[in-house]
Lab assay of single mutants.
Amino acid sequence: MASQGTKRSYEQMETDGERQNATEIRASVGKMIDGIGRFYIQMCTELKLSDYEGRLIQNSLTIERMVLSAFDERRNKYLEEHPSAGKDPKKTGGPIYKRVDRKWMRELVLYDKEEIRRIWRQANNGDDATAGLTHMMIWHSNLNDTTYQRTRALVRTGMDPRMCSLMQGSTLPRRSGAAGAAVKGVGTMVMELIRMIKRGINDRNFWRGENGRKTRSAYERMCNILKGKFQTAAQRAMMDQVRESRNPGNAEIEDLIFLARSALILRGSVAHKSCLPACVYGPAVASGYDFEKEGYSLVGIDPFKLLQNSQVYSLIRPNENPAHKSQLVWMACNSAAFEDLRVLSFIRGTKVSPRGKLSTRGVQIASNENMDAMESSTLELRSRYWAIRTRSGGNTNQQRASAGQISVQPAFSVQRNLPFDKPTIMAAFTGNTEGRTSDMRAEIIRMMEGAKPEEMSFQGRGVFELSDERAANPIVPSFDMSNEGSYFFGDNAEEYDN
Protein backbone atom coordinates (compact mmCIF):
# COMPACT_ATOMS: atom_id res chain seq x y z
CA MET A 1 0.00 0.00 0.00
CA ALA A 2 1.36 3.39 -0.99
CA SER A 3 0.66 5.13 2.31
CA GLN A 4 2.50 2.45 4.27
CA GLY A 5 5.10 4.99 5.38
CA THR A 6 2.55 7.14 7.18
CA LYS A 7 1.21 4.26 9.24
CA ARG A 8 2.77 2.69 12.30
CA SER A 9 3.84 -0.88 11.69
CA TYR A 10 1.77 -3.48 13.46
CA GLU A 11 4.54 -4.27 15.85
CA GLN A 12 4.37 -0.64 16.97
CA MET A 13 0.61 -0.93 17.39
CA GLU A 14 1.19 -4.17 19.24
CA THR A 15 3.56 -2.51 21.69
CA ASP A 16 2.05 0.99 21.92
CA GLY A 17 5.41 2.26 20.67
CA GLU A 18 6.22 5.56 19.07
CA ARG A 19 8.33 5.30 15.92
CA GLN A 20 10.98 2.68 16.51
CA ASN A 21 13.54 1.10 14.26
CA ALA A 22 13.30 -2.58 13.34
CA THR A 23 15.59 -3.74 16.14
CA GLU A 24 13.67 -1.81 18.79
CA ILE A 25 10.39 -3.16 17.46
CA ARG A 26 11.70 -6.73 17.56
CA ALA A 27 12.88 -6.19 21.13
CA SER A 28 9.60 -4.70 22.36
CA VAL A 29 7.54 -7.46 20.74
CA GLY A 30 9.97 -9.95 22.31
CA LYS A 31 9.45 -8.31 25.69
CA MET A 32 5.69 -8.72 25.29
CA ILE A 33 6.11 -12.44 24.47
CA ASP A 34 8.46 -12.88 27.46
CA GLY A 35 5.79 -11.42 29.73
CA ILE A 36 3.10 -13.79 28.46
CA GLY A 37 5.50 -16.72 28.85
CA ARG A 38 6.51 -15.81 32.42
CA PHE A 39 2.86 -15.33 33.38
CA TYR A 40 1.98 -18.74 31.95
CA ILE A 41 4.80 -20.49 33.84
CA GLN A 42 3.65 -18.89 37.09
CA MET A 43 0.01 -19.89 36.49
CA CYS A 44 1.03 -23.50 35.81
CA THR A 45 2.86 -23.48 39.15
CA GLU A 46 -0.18 -22.00 40.95
CA LEU A 47 -2.44 -24.63 39.41
CA LYS A 48 0.09 -27.44 40.02
CA LEU A 49 0.04 -28.52 36.38
CA SER A 50 2.43 -31.17 35.10
CA ASP A 51 4.52 -30.34 32.03
CA TYR A 52 2.05 -32.23 29.81
CA GLU A 53 -1.00 -30.55 31.38
CA GLY A 54 0.68 -27.17 30.94
CA ARG A 55 1.06 -27.85 27.22
CA LEU A 56 -2.64 -28.69 26.84
CA ILE A 57 -4.23 -26.04 24.64
CA GLN A 58 -7.53 -26.17 26.57
CA ASN A 59 -5.69 -25.24 29.80
CA SER A 60 -3.91 -22.47 27.94
CA LEU A 61 -7.24 -21.02 26.75
CA THR A 62 -8.68 -21.06 30.29
CA ILE A 63 -5.62 -19.29 31.72
CA GLU A 64 -5.62 -16.70 28.91
CA ARG A 65 -9.35 -16.09 29.45
CA MET A 66 -8.84 -15.61 33.18
CA VAL A 67 -6.29 -12.85 32.75
CA LEU A 68 -8.33 -11.14 30.02
CA SER A 69 -11.37 -11.20 32.28
CA ALA A 70 -9.33 -9.90 35.24
CA PHE A 71 -8.32 -6.84 33.19
CA ASP A 72 -11.72 -6.21 31.57
CA GLU A 73 -12.41 -3.01 33.51
CA ARG A 74 -15.70 -2.12 31.88
CA ARG A 75 -17.20 -5.53 32.42
CA ASN A 76 -15.85 -5.70 35.97
CA LYS A 77 -17.48 -2.37 36.75
CA TYR A 78 -20.73 -3.52 35.15
CA LEU A 79 -20.71 -6.76 37.17
CA GLU A 80 -20.18 -4.84 40.41
CA GLU A 81 -23.11 -2.51 39.61
CA HIS A 82 -25.45 -5.25 38.31
CA PRO A 83 -24.83 -8.24 40.57
CA SER A 84 -26.19 -11.46 39.09
CA ALA A 85 -27.00 -14.54 41.14
CA GLY A 86 -24.16 -16.98 41.59
CA LYS A 87 -21.52 -14.79 39.91
CA ASP A 88 -18.83 -13.24 42.05
CA PRO A 89 -17.69 -10.09 40.21
CA LYS A 90 -14.32 -10.22 41.96
CA LYS A 91 -13.48 -13.76 40.88
CA THR A 92 -12.55 -15.39 37.60
CA GLY A 93 -11.91 -18.98 36.62
CA GLY A 94 -12.69 -21.81 34.27
CA PRO A 95 -12.10 -25.48 33.53
CA ILE A 96 -8.61 -26.89 34.10
CA TYR A 97 -7.95 -30.39 32.79
CA LYS A 98 -5.74 -32.84 34.66
CA ARG A 99 -4.67 -36.40 34.01
CA VAL A 100 -5.78 -38.59 36.93
CA ASP A 101 -5.50 -42.41 36.89
CA ARG A 102 -5.00 -42.56 33.11
CA LYS A 103 -8.12 -40.43 32.59
CA TRP A 104 -8.74 -36.75 31.90
CA MET A 105 -10.61 -34.94 34.67
CA ARG A 106 -12.15 -31.48 34.58
CA GLU A 107 -11.60 -29.26 37.59
CA LEU A 108 -13.26 -25.84 37.89
CA VAL A 109 -10.87 -23.31 39.41
CA LEU A 110 -11.71 -19.89 40.84
CA TYR A 111 -9.26 -17.06 41.56
CA ASP A 112 -9.47 -13.50 42.79
CA LYS A 113 -9.12 -11.19 39.81
CA GLU A 114 -6.84 -9.06 41.97
CA GLU A 115 -4.52 -12.05 42.43
CA ILE A 116 -4.43 -12.77 38.68
CA ARG A 117 -3.66 -9.11 37.97
CA ARG A 118 -0.83 -9.27 40.50
CA ILE A 119 0.69 -12.36 38.84
CA TRP A 120 0.36 -10.78 35.37
CA ARG A 121 1.98 -7.50 36.44
CA GLN A 122 4.75 -9.34 38.23
CA ALA A 123 5.50 -11.30 35.04
CA ASN A 124 5.55 -8.01 33.11
CA ASN A 125 7.92 -5.99 35.33
CA GLY A 126 5.08 -4.28 37.15
CA ASP A 127 3.34 -2.99 34.00
CA ASP A 128 -0.25 -3.63 32.94
CA ALA A 129 1.29 -4.82 29.65
CA THR A 130 -1.80 -4.10 27.57
CA ALA A 131 0.01 -5.21 24.42
CA GLY A 132 0.31 -8.75 25.79
CA LEU A 133 -3.40 -8.80 26.65
CA THR A 134 -4.31 -7.64 23.14
CA HIS A 135 -2.02 -10.29 21.71
CA MET A 136 -4.01 -12.99 23.51
CA MET A 137 -7.28 -11.44 22.33
CA ILE A 138 -6.06 -11.64 18.73
CA TRP A 139 -5.09 -15.30 19.21
CA HIS A 140 -8.62 -16.04 20.48
CA SER A 141 -10.06 -14.06 17.58
CA ASN A 142 -7.96 -15.97 15.03
CA LEU A 143 -9.09 -19.25 16.59
CA ASN A 144 -12.74 -18.18 16.36
CA ASP A 145 -12.25 -17.11 12.73
CA THR A 146 -10.95 -20.58 11.90
CA THR A 147 -13.59 -22.45 13.87
CA TYR A 148 -16.85 -20.64 13.14
CA GLN A 149 -18.50 -19.14 10.11
CA ARG A 150 -20.39 -15.99 11.07
CA THR A 151 -23.46 -16.66 8.91
CA ARG A 152 -26.00 -15.51 11.45
CA ALA A 153 -24.18 -12.30 12.30
CA LEU A 154 -23.84 -11.45 8.60
CA VAL A 155 -27.50 -12.10 7.85
CA ARG A 156 -28.65 -10.08 10.87
CA THR A 157 -26.88 -6.98 9.59
CA GLY A 158 -28.21 -7.46 6.06
CA MET A 159 -25.01 -8.83 4.55
CA ASP A 160 -24.55 -11.98 2.48
CA PRO A 161 -23.09 -15.01 4.33
CA ARG A 162 -20.85 -15.61 1.32
CA MET A 163 -18.94 -12.48 2.30
CA CYS A 164 -17.37 -14.33 5.24
CA SER A 165 -13.82 -13.70 3.96
CA LEU A 166 -14.28 -10.08 5.10
CA MET A 167 -15.06 -11.03 8.70
CA GLN A 168 -11.61 -11.37 10.24
CA GLY A 169 -11.58 -10.23 13.87
CA SER A 170 -15.37 -10.16 14.18
CA THR A 171 -15.22 -11.55 17.73
CA LEU A 172 -12.50 -9.18 18.99
CA PRO A 173 -13.59 -7.19 22.04
CA ARG A 174 -14.01 -3.44 21.64
CA ARG A 175 -11.07 -2.76 23.92
CA SER A 176 -8.50 -4.36 21.63
CA GLY A 177 -6.97 -1.01 20.64
CA ALA A 178 -4.96 -0.12 17.53
CA ALA A 179 -3.50 -3.61 17.16
CA GLY A 180 -7.04 -5.02 17.20
CA ALA A 181 -8.31 -2.48 14.66
CA ALA A 182 -5.46 -3.38 12.30
CA VAL A 183 -6.52 -7.03 12.05
CA LYS A 184 -10.24 -6.40 11.61
CA GLY A 185 -11.60 -7.20 8.16
CA VAL A 186 -13.70 -4.79 6.08
CA GLY A 187 -16.85 -6.80 6.86
CA THR A 188 -16.19 -6.63 10.59
CA MET A 189 -15.92 -2.84 10.51
CA VAL A 190 -19.03 -2.58 8.32
CA MET A 191 -20.96 -4.79 10.72
CA GLU A 192 -19.93 -2.71 13.74
CA LEU A 193 -21.00 0.48 11.95
CA ILE A 194 -24.33 -0.97 10.81
CA ARG A 195 -25.14 -2.08 14.35
CA MET A 196 -24.41 1.43 15.54
CA ILE A 197 -26.57 3.07 12.85
CA LYS A 198 -29.44 0.67 13.60
CA ARG A 199 -29.32 1.64 17.26
CA GLY A 200 -29.51 5.26 16.19
CA ILE A 201 -32.57 4.53 14.06
CA ASN A 202 -34.34 2.74 16.91
CA ASP A 203 -33.28 4.98 19.78
CA ARG A 204 -33.91 8.69 19.28
CA ASN A 205 -31.44 9.73 21.94
CA PHE A 206 -28.54 7.66 20.67
CA TRP A 207 -26.80 10.58 18.93
CA ARG A 208 -28.02 13.24 21.38
CA GLY A 209 -26.72 14.88 24.51
CA GLU A 210 -23.41 14.36 26.28
CA ASN A 211 -23.33 10.62 25.52
CA GLY A 212 -24.32 11.28 21.92
CA ARG A 213 -21.16 13.31 21.42
CA LYS A 214 -19.04 10.36 22.54
CA THR A 215 -21.10 8.07 20.33
CA ARG A 216 -20.58 10.38 17.37
CA SER A 217 -16.82 10.52 17.81
CA ALA A 218 -16.70 6.71 18.12
CA TYR A 219 -18.73 6.49 14.88
CA GLU A 220 -16.34 8.82 13.05
CA ARG A 221 -13.31 7.00 14.41
CA MET A 222 -14.66 3.65 13.17
CA CYS A 223 -15.41 5.22 9.77
CA ASN A 224 -11.81 6.42 9.56
CA ILE A 225 -10.45 2.98 10.48
CA LEU A 226 -12.55 1.44 7.72
CA LYS A 227 -11.59 4.18 5.25
CA GLY A 228 -7.92 3.42 5.95
CA LYS A 229 -8.45 -0.19 4.94
CA PHE A 230 -9.67 0.69 1.44
CA GLN A 231 -7.07 1.04 -1.30
CA THR A 232 -9.01 2.98 -3.97
CA ALA A 233 -9.96 6.65 -3.99
CA ALA A 234 -13.61 5.99 -4.83
CA GLN A 235 -14.09 3.63 -1.90
CA ARG A 236 -12.45 6.15 0.42
CA ALA A 237 -14.57 9.01 -0.91
CA MET A 238 -17.67 6.97 -0.21
CA MET A 239 -16.47 6.41 3.37
CA ASP A 240 -16.10 10.18 3.77
CA GLN A 241 -19.77 10.50 2.79
CA VAL A 242 -20.81 7.91 5.36
CA ARG A 243 -18.71 9.56 8.06
CA GLU A 244 -19.98 13.08 7.40
CA SER A 245 -23.66 12.13 7.34
CA ARG A 246 -25.66 14.40 9.68
CA ASN A 247 -28.01 11.67 10.76
CA PRO A 248 -26.81 8.21 9.75
CA GLY A 249 -29.64 5.97 8.57
CA ASN A 250 -30.64 3.48 5.89
CA ALA A 251 -28.81 5.31 3.11
CA GLU A 252 -25.55 4.85 5.04
CA ILE A 253 -26.33 1.19 5.69
CA GLU A 254 -26.86 0.71 1.94
CA ASP A 255 -23.56 2.46 1.18
CA LEU A 256 -21.70 0.33 3.73
CA ILE A 257 -23.10 -2.94 2.37
CA PHE A 258 -22.18 -1.78 -1.14
CA LEU A 259 -18.64 -1.07 0.05
CA ALA A 260 -18.39 -4.44 1.81
CA ARG A 261 -19.39 -6.23 -1.40
CA SER A 262 -16.93 -4.18 -3.41
CA ALA A 263 -14.17 -5.35 -1.04
CA LEU A 264 -14.62 -8.91 -2.32
CA ILE A 265 -12.83 -7.76 -5.47
CA LEU A 266 -11.19 -4.43 -4.54
CA ARG A 267 -9.75 -5.87 -1.35
CA GLY A 268 -9.02 -3.88 1.76
CA SER A 269 -5.69 -4.01 3.55
CA VAL A 270 -6.04 -6.05 6.69
CA ALA A 271 -3.10 -6.98 8.92
CA HIS A 272 -2.25 -10.60 9.71
CA LYS A 273 -0.31 -11.56 12.81
CA SER A 274 0.73 -14.94 14.06
CA CYS A 275 -0.42 -14.95 17.66
CA LEU A 276 0.27 -18.24 19.44
CA PRO A 277 -1.32 -19.71 22.57
CA ALA A 278 0.38 -18.90 25.88
CA CYS A 279 1.33 -22.58 26.29
CA VAL A 280 3.78 -22.12 23.38
CA TYR A 281 5.48 -19.05 24.88
CA GLY A 282 5.64 -20.46 28.43
CA PRO A 283 7.80 -23.54 27.75
CA ALA A 284 10.05 -21.50 25.40
CA VAL A 285 10.74 -18.97 28.16
CA ALA A 286 11.14 -21.80 30.69
CA SER A 287 13.79 -23.40 28.49
CA GLY A 288 15.84 -20.22 28.82
CA TYR A 289 15.04 -18.49 25.52
CA ASP A 290 15.17 -14.70 25.90
CA PHE A 291 12.66 -13.22 23.45
CA GLU A 292 13.53 -9.62 24.27
CA LYS A 293 17.25 -10.18 23.70
CA GLU A 294 16.78 -12.29 20.56
CA GLY A 295 13.98 -10.11 19.17
CA TYR A 296 10.69 -11.40 17.78
CA SER A 297 8.31 -10.52 14.96
CA LEU A 298 4.70 -11.57 14.47
CA VAL A 299 4.90 -11.28 10.70
CA GLY A 300 8.13 -13.04 9.76
CA ILE A 301 9.82 -16.38 10.32
CA ASP A 302 9.78 -16.27 14.15
CA PRO A 303 6.35 -17.85 14.80
CA PHE A 304 7.16 -20.61 12.29
CA LYS A 305 10.44 -21.41 14.05
CA LEU A 306 8.73 -21.38 17.43
CA LEU A 307 5.98 -23.77 16.28
CA GLN A 308 8.61 -26.00 14.64
CA ASN A 309 10.07 -26.67 18.10
CA SER A 310 6.94 -26.70 20.25
CA GLN A 311 4.93 -29.56 21.70
CA VAL A 312 1.25 -28.65 22.13
CA TYR A 313 -1.44 -31.15 23.06
CA SER A 314 -5.20 -31.05 22.73
CA LEU A 315 -8.12 -32.98 24.14
CA ILE A 316 -9.86 -34.95 21.39
CA ARG A 317 -13.52 -35.97 21.49
CA PRO A 318 -14.38 -39.58 20.62
CA ASN A 319 -15.31 -39.01 16.95
CA GLU A 320 -12.84 -36.26 16.12
CA ASN A 321 -9.84 -36.57 13.83
CA PRO A 322 -6.61 -35.36 15.50
CA ALA A 323 -5.12 -34.36 12.13
CA HIS A 324 -8.15 -32.16 11.48
CA LYS A 325 -7.90 -30.61 14.94
CA SER A 326 -4.26 -29.85 14.13
CA GLN A 327 -5.20 -28.12 10.88
CA LEU A 328 -7.73 -25.94 12.70
CA VAL A 329 -5.17 -24.77 15.26
CA TRP A 330 -2.39 -24.43 12.65
CA MET A 331 -4.58 -22.07 10.61
CA ALA A 332 -5.44 -20.07 13.73
CA CYS A 333 -1.78 -19.77 14.72
CA ASN A 334 -0.97 -18.41 11.27
CA SER A 335 -3.96 -16.06 11.13
CA ALA A 336 -5.00 -17.79 7.93
CA ALA A 337 -8.73 -18.50 8.19
CA PHE A 338 -9.51 -16.59 4.99
CA GLU A 339 -6.40 -17.40 2.99
CA ASP A 340 -6.50 -19.47 -0.19
CA LEU A 341 -6.28 -23.15 0.80
CA ARG A 342 -3.90 -23.90 -2.07
CA VAL A 343 -1.40 -21.37 -0.71
CA LEU A 344 -1.80 -22.86 2.77
CA SER A 345 -1.38 -26.44 1.54
CA PHE A 346 1.90 -25.49 -0.13
CA ILE A 347 3.27 -23.68 2.93
CA ARG A 348 2.19 -26.36 5.36
CA GLY A 349 3.35 -29.21 3.16
CA THR A 350 0.16 -31.21 3.73
CA LYS A 351 -3.26 -30.71 2.21
CA VAL A 352 -5.37 -28.11 3.98
CA SER A 353 -9.08 -28.95 3.65
CA PRO A 354 -12.22 -26.81 3.76
CA ARG A 355 -13.94 -26.42 7.14
CA GLY A 356 -16.90 -28.57 6.17
CA LYS A 357 -14.64 -31.55 5.45
CA LEU A 358 -12.99 -31.49 8.87
CA SER A 359 -14.15 -33.97 11.51
CA THR A 360 -13.55 -31.66 14.42
CA ARG A 361 -15.53 -29.27 16.54
CA GLY A 362 -14.07 -26.25 18.31
CA VAL A 363 -11.05 -26.49 20.58
CA GLN A 364 -12.93 -25.53 23.73
CA ILE A 365 -14.82 -28.21 25.62
CA ALA A 366 -18.26 -27.28 26.97
CA SER A 367 -18.90 -27.78 30.69
CA ASN A 368 -21.61 -30.36 30.02
CA GLU A 369 -19.47 -32.60 27.81
CA ASN A 370 -18.63 -36.01 29.20
CA MET A 371 -14.93 -36.40 30.06
CA ASP A 372 -14.94 -40.21 30.27
CA ALA A 373 -14.15 -40.87 26.64
CA MET A 374 -11.77 -37.89 26.19
CA GLU A 375 -8.37 -38.68 24.75
CA SER A 376 -5.53 -36.29 24.07
CA SER A 377 -3.11 -36.06 21.18
CA THR A 378 -0.24 -33.95 19.88
CA LEU A 379 -1.16 -31.04 17.62
CA GLU A 380 0.97 -31.05 14.45
CA LEU A 381 1.72 -27.33 14.05
CA ARG A 382 4.89 -27.51 11.95
CA SER A 383 5.22 -26.21 8.40
CA ARG A 384 7.25 -27.14 5.33
CA TYR A 385 8.00 -23.52 4.34
CA TRP A 386 7.51 -20.09 5.84
CA ALA A 387 6.19 -16.92 4.23
CA ILE A 388 5.86 -13.27 5.15
CA ARG A 389 2.45 -12.17 6.43
CA THR A 390 0.78 -9.44 4.39
CA ARG A 391 -1.45 -6.52 5.12
CA SER A 392 -2.27 -5.68 1.55
CA GLY A 393 -5.35 -7.26 0.07
CA GLY A 394 -3.40 -8.01 -3.11
CA ASN A 395 -4.78 -7.18 -6.53
CA THR A 396 -7.61 -9.22 -7.79
CA ASN A 397 -8.47 -12.12 -9.89
CA GLN A 398 -11.05 -14.49 -11.08
CA GLN A 399 -11.11 -18.14 -10.21
CA ARG A 400 -13.59 -20.96 -9.98
CA ALA A 401 -15.36 -20.18 -6.73
CA SER A 402 -17.74 -21.97 -4.46
CA ALA A 403 -21.25 -21.99 -3.14
CA GLY A 404 -19.92 -20.90 0.24
CA GLN A 405 -17.16 -18.35 0.50
CA ILE A 406 -16.75 -16.35 -2.72
CA SER A 407 -13.46 -14.57 -2.13
CA VAL A 408 -10.31 -14.76 -0.01
CA GLN A 409 -8.34 -12.33 2.16
CA PRO A 410 -4.65 -13.16 1.70
CA ALA A 411 -2.63 -13.77 4.86
CA PHE A 412 0.69 -14.45 3.14
CA SER A 413 2.64 -12.39 0.69
CA VAL A 414 2.90 -15.15 -1.92
CA GLN A 415 2.38 -14.92 -5.69
CA ARG A 416 -0.92 -16.39 -6.85
CA ASN A 417 -4.18 -15.82 -8.67
CA LEU A 418 -6.70 -14.62 -6.12
CA PRO A 419 -9.91 -16.60 -6.34
CA PHE A 420 -13.28 -14.89 -6.46
CA ASP A 421 -16.45 -15.70 -8.28
CA LYS A 422 -16.88 -12.61 -10.43
CA PRO A 423 -20.34 -13.32 -11.90
CA THR A 424 -21.74 -14.02 -8.43
CA ILE A 425 -20.21 -10.88 -6.96
CA MET A 426 -21.15 -8.63 -9.89
CA ALA A 427 -24.75 -9.89 -9.85
CA ALA A 428 -25.15 -8.05 -6.56
CA PHE A 429 -24.34 -4.74 -8.25
CA THR A 430 -27.15 -4.46 -10.77
CA GLY A 431 -29.16 -1.29 -11.01
CA ASN A 432 -28.63 0.45 -7.73
CA THR A 433 -26.36 3.34 -8.69
CA GLU A 434 -28.64 6.27 -7.99
CA GLY A 435 -28.51 8.61 -5.03
CA ARG A 436 -25.81 10.90 -3.72
CA THR A 437 -23.01 8.36 -4.07
CA SER A 438 -23.91 7.42 -7.66
CA ASP A 439 -20.68 8.64 -9.28
CA MET A 440 -18.54 6.82 -6.73
CA ARG A 441 -20.62 3.67 -7.07
CA ALA A 442 -20.29 3.76 -10.84
CA GLU A 443 -16.53 4.23 -10.54
CA ILE A 444 -16.21 1.32 -8.07
CA ILE A 445 -18.27 -0.98 -10.30
CA ARG A 446 -16.14 0.01 -13.29
CA MET A 447 -12.97 -0.93 -11.40
CA MET A 448 -14.47 -4.24 -10.33
CA GLU A 449 -15.48 -5.09 -13.86
CA GLY A 450 -11.98 -4.27 -15.02
CA ALA A 451 -10.35 -6.74 -12.63
CA LYS A 452 -8.49 -9.15 -14.92
CA PRO A 453 -8.43 -12.91 -14.40
CA GLU A 454 -4.89 -13.37 -15.65
CA GLU A 455 -3.24 -10.87 -13.29
CA MET A 456 -0.95 -12.32 -10.67
CA SER A 457 -1.10 -10.97 -7.17
CA PHE A 458 2.05 -10.46 -5.06
CA GLN A 459 4.18 -10.78 -8.20
CA GLY A 460 7.42 -12.68 -7.61
CA ARG A 461 6.77 -13.14 -3.90
CA GLY A 462 7.51 -16.62 -2.73
CA VAL A 463 7.81 -18.88 0.26
CA PHE A 464 11.10 -19.71 1.97
CA GLU A 465 12.86 -22.75 3.38
CA LEU A 466 12.89 -22.71 7.18
CA SER A 467 16.70 -22.55 7.02
CA ASP A 468 16.45 -19.31 4.99
CA GLU A 469 15.97 -16.87 7.86
CA ARG A 470 16.97 -13.81 5.84
CA ALA A 471 14.38 -14.60 3.15
CA ALA A 472 17.14 -14.61 0.53
CA ASN A 473 15.87 -17.32 -1.84
CA PRO A 474 12.17 -17.06 -2.62
CA ILE A 475 10.50 -20.18 -3.99
CA VAL A 476 7.49 -19.26 -6.11
CA PRO A 477 5.05 -22.06 -5.34
CA SER A 478 2.97 -24.10 -7.74
CA PHE A 479 -0.66 -24.73 -6.86
CA ASP A 480 -2.96 -27.61 -7.58
CA MET A 481 -5.80 -25.71 -9.23
CA SER A 482 -8.11 -28.72 -9.09
CA ASN A 483 -8.41 -28.18 -5.34
CA GLU A 484 -10.88 -25.86 -3.72
CA GLY A 485 -9.59 -22.41 -2.73
CA SER A 486 -12.12 -21.40 -0.09
CA TYR A 487 -12.08 -22.67 3.48
CA PHE A 488 -15.77 -22.08 4.19
CA PHE A 489 -16.72 -23.79 0.94
CA GLY A 490 -20.46 -24.66 0.77
CA ASP A 491 -20.00 -24.98 4.41
CA ASN A 492 -21.57 -26.35 7.56
CA ALA A 493 -19.27 -24.95 10.25
CA GLU A 494 -20.88 -24.30 13.60
CA GLU A 495 -22.13 -20.83 14.34
CA TYR A 496 -20.18 -18.68 16.80
CA ASP A 497 -22.15 -18.12 20.01
CA ASN A 498 -20.90 -15.80 22.71
Rank of each mutant, 00 (worst) to 15 (best):
C44V: 07
I41N: 13
M238W: 01
K305F: 14
N492D: 10
V352P: 09
R267N: 07
D240M: 04
Q241F: 14
L379M: 15
K184T: 06
Y97T: 05
P419H: 13
G126S: 12
A182E: 01
V100H: 15
G228R: 11
I194P: 03
T232Y: 13
G180S: 02
G394Y: 05
L264K: 13
A336R: 11
D240Y: 04
F230M: 02
N21M: 15
A178P: 12
N368Q: 12
Q149V: 08
I96F: 12
I57L: 15
R55D: 10
K357D: 08
Y78K: 03
S269Y: 02
F464E: 06
I265D: 02
P303H: 01
D480R: 13
F304N: 05
S402T: 15
A366Q: 05
D421Y: 10
D145P: 05
S478E: 00
S457K: 00
K227T: 09
N370M: 09
Y10V: 14
T6M: 04
Q409S: 14
V312I: 15
T390V: 06
N319L: 07
K325P: 05
T437A: 15
P410Q: 08
S165G: 12
K325H: 06
G462E: 14
A442M: 14
A85Y: 11
K273Q: 07
Y111S: 13
L133S: 02
S269D: 11
G37R: 01
A123Q: 06
L264R: 01
M481T: 02
R175K: 15
H324M: 03
L108F: 11
K305S: 09
Y313H: 14
I347M: 12
M43T: 14
T437C: 11
G490Y: 06
A472D: 06
L68V: 03
S287V: 04
R441A: 08
L306C: 08
R348M: 07
W207T: 02
Q399H: 15
N144M: 14
L381N: 14
K227G: 01
G485E: 01
V155M: 04
Q364W: 05
Q20A: 00
V352D: 04
E294R: 12
T430M: 06
S262V: 13
D145M: 12
K357S: 05
A129F: 04
R342K: 14
L166C: 01
R195C: 11
S297W: 05
L379N: 10
R348D: 07
E375N: 14
V29N: 01
A233N: 11
I347G: 05
E494C: 06
L328Q: 07
